[in-house]
């Protein structure tokens, strides 16, 4: 397969094809491929691996993290250090159109790599902490991270209407900043054009 000319990098908690977040990442990479854009996905796994999904121009880089934590919140934030390491390694070799943080658990690494390499940041939300009931002991810091992600991203993708509502009413995200998947693809096209013009 000829390598597509443009790439995006996605940071997600995991990719195992048996849960919704992974299915979304796979689906997204298919959409990206239709635009001629390849996807690199960096996520956690107990062991290192690199897997290609040529049908979607998707490369999955799995990185382990050694520590156990007392809560999922602490684990997710700590684990992001490994996503950052791998993200930096990839961003030094490859040129990315966009960095995508999938959910608050992928946002810290996405934010770091976006900031260091000056690449536009987009965060994808399937739900907000308010959607999930705000009943977890670390709901407040999680929600603060979601607010920060929605505030510092160039665009925010809401995967359903409930989530969109919460982004607008709970996290005060301006409506014009919130995209659907189709809107995201439009945004990718726009970034492609800008990059082609630059070159």
């Amino acid at each position: 397969m000829d390598k597509p000319p443009f790439r995006v990098i996605v940071f997600a908690r995991e990719f195992n094809r048996e849960e919704a977040v992974s299915d979304f990442c796979y689906f997204l990479s298919g959409k990206m491929k239709s635009l001629g854009v390849a996807t690199d996905l960096v996520c956690y796994s107990p062991e290192y691996s690199e897997t290609e999904f040529p049908e979607n121009a998707l490369s999955v880089f799995r990185v382990p993290f050694a520590l156990n934590a007392d809560t999922f919140f602490n684990w997710a934030l700590l684990m992001n250090a490994e996503l950052k390491r791998k993200g930096r390694e990839l961003a030094e070799k490859r040129e990315y159109l966009m960095v995508i943080g999938n959910d608050w658990t992928g946002y810290p690494a996405a934010s770091s790599i976006s900031s260091l390499f000056n690449i536009p940041l987009v965060t994808v939300f399937s739900s907000t902490e308010q959607n999930r009931g705000f009943s977890y002991e670390n709901s407040r810091p999680i929600s603060d991270i979601e607010w920060e992600a929605s505030d510092s991203s160039r665009r925010v993708v809401a995967l359903n209407n409930d989530c969109r509502n919460s982004l607008v009413y709970d996290l005060k995200v301006p409506q014009e900043k919130i995209l659907t998947i189709e809107g995201l693809l439009e945004y990718v096209r726009l970034l492609e054009e800008v990059l082609v013009e630059k070159k």
Partner: peptide, 14 residues
Amino acid sequence: TWAPNTLAWSNFLC
């Protein structure tokens, strides 16, 4: 931010 304990608080601050 507000956090239930020092670990979560410091992790967020970091």
